[in-house]
Amino acid sequence: MVHTAVVDITPTSSALSSPALSLGRLHIEYGQGNSLMISPCNREQFVRDIEAATRDLA
């Protein structure tokens, strides 16, 4: 399995990513210049889970 480092996670309400029912999205930067926007059900828990997984990989 290849692990790609999450560089930054920021809240956004941009509608530029694919259609979703929520504009409460997270912009995730990872690897070298890659990014995506997602809309998890629970943004705060998602961020905590990513932070925990990142600590576990270090």
Rank of each mutant, 00 (worst) to 15 (best):
S13G: 06
L16H: 10
R48F: 01
E51F: 01
E44Y: 07
A20G: 13
L36G: 05
N34P: 00
P40M: 04
S22T: 15
I50L: 02
L16C: 05
R55W: 04
S18W: 12
T54R: 11
H3C: 12
S13R: 12
S22R: 15
S39Q: 04
L57A: 09
A15R: 09
V47T: 10
V7G: 04
T10Y: 01
L23M: 12
R25L: 04
C41E: 14
R43M: 06
R43F: 02
L23E: 04
I50W: 01
L36A: 13
L26H: 04
L21F: 14
R48T: 03
D8F: 00
S35C: 10
Q45A: 12
D56C: 02
I50F: 02
V2A: 07
L21C: 06
I38C: 15
I9E: 02
T10V: 12
G24A: 14
I28E: 02
E29T: 05
S13C: 04
I38R: 08
R25V: 06
P11H: 09
D56W: 05
I38D: 08
I38E: 07
L26E: 02
Y30N: 07
Q45D: 11
Q45F: 01
V6I: 15
Q32R: 13
N34H: 11
L57P: 00
I38S: 09
T12C: 04
E29S: 12
S18V: 06
S14Y: 03
D56T: 10
I38M: 11
S35E: 15
V6K: 06
A58G: 09
T10F: 00
I28W: 02
S22V: 06
I50A: 03
L16T: 06
M37Y: 08
N42I: 00
E51M: 07
